[in-house]
Design a binder for these strands. Structure first.
Lengths: 204, 204
DNA sequence: GTCTATAGAAGGATAGAC
DNA sequence: GTCTATCCTTCTATAGAC
């Protein structure tokens, strides 16, 4: 593959990413992608054969990026509280740079649930859960979190971070009426969410 | 309008609701709607002129139902804590009966943000905020919640309740790997979420 | 009000020249 | 590798009979 090929393929991929994230698989038009890439439709098919192939390539890359962002938080030796703070800082900063990603992933997985299986194929959640639980055994006991409620806690953290972006259209509609800027709301939410979760799991 | 008309229009509307909630505006096919309603395409256009009209009718009704479900919780004379418990019980029970609604509303509003403006046209959030704040002034002070952080709290409650349904495809993919049933997870979440939020806002 | 038949447009995909 | 021209299917929408 020559340097020129790579550049064209790259251009197509970037244009396709923009269009698919904006309009979704069903709403996207090959003509629109070609226009944004500055080439013609025939060339799209030369590089990616079908719309499905092109979409799959984009989805796998972008959805993968999003799920990867959940991992590193649990790798290091921080306390549970510091990990929670780190999570919201890092994760929401990532979403600020990729604000359309949550809505895109949520929509396309609901449309075609099989996609999630492929994405999670190599993830061993049971081992992961166990690791978190072992690593923070004492803290979790102190916080009164059982092994059974750990999934509820994790999903709650994801919800706190992801929901405002996934439902961005709705949120902006509400915030506009309150004269609150979306970005300012998110900025403040990083600390709010961390405090909220830490307080929620702290015993009285 | 005769009884027969009403029945046909009803049948079309219900079929359209099913298809639009499943496939979204872009993925839905008029032929599919006609088939499920047990009539032909021409009759769809006789009753609703265009696909856009039909979609608008469905969206307005279903999205309206969802937002209405947020209101009554704030009407009565319960304590803040009881209202929070009531909210999760009522709201999540409603979503259990309409599991595809969150994904549908989120997707279609992101696709066309103007829709939200029409929906919220007659809602005075500032008055609503103020009402909640006045009604629970003392409790909020006790809980250490400022007027500024009230929107963050409300969005967090919405996130805790709505996110698992909006991102249902993702959640089911994860839960399957942990041998947890989605409905059981939701059932347990009703109490978990209420405890979580109440604990989060309680001073230590 | 309901149907069959079809118009008309749009969009994905390919043939073939350069 | 890239383009123009075009095929072919799909889908919304309408005409016209009953």
């Amino acid at each position: 593959m020559t340097e020129n090929d790579r550049q064209t393929e790259e251009k197509i991929f970037e244009a396709a990413t923009e269009v698919f994230l904006e309009k979704g698989m069903d709403g996207a038009r090959m003509q629109d992608i070609a226009d944004r890439a500055g080439i013609n439709k025939a060339l799209l098919h030369y590089y990616f054969r079908t719309k499905d192939h092109l979409f799959d390539a984009v989805f796998e890359k972008k959805a993968g990026e999003m799920f990867k962002k959940f991992e590193p938080v649990f790798d290091d030796g921080l306390s549970l509280e510091d990990k929670i703070r780190l999570f919201f800082r890092e994760h929401m900063a990532f979403l600020q740079e990729n604000p359309k990603l949550p809505g895109f992933v949520v929509t396309e997985i609901n449309r075609n649930p099989d996609r999630i299986k492929k994405l999670l194929k190599n993830v061993d959640f049971n081992a992961f859960w166990l690791l978190v639980f072992e690593k923070h055994k004492n803290e979790l006991k102190k916080y009164n979190i059982s092994k059974e409620s750990l999934p509820q806690l994790m999903i709650s953290m994801a919800a706190m971070s992801v929901f405002p972006f996934a439902a961005r259209g709705i949120l902006e509609g509400i915030l506009e009426k309150l004269d609150i800027d979306f970005n300012k709301f998110i900025e403040e939410r990083i600390e709010f969410a961390a405090d909220f979760v830490i307080n929620a799991i702290t015993r009285k």
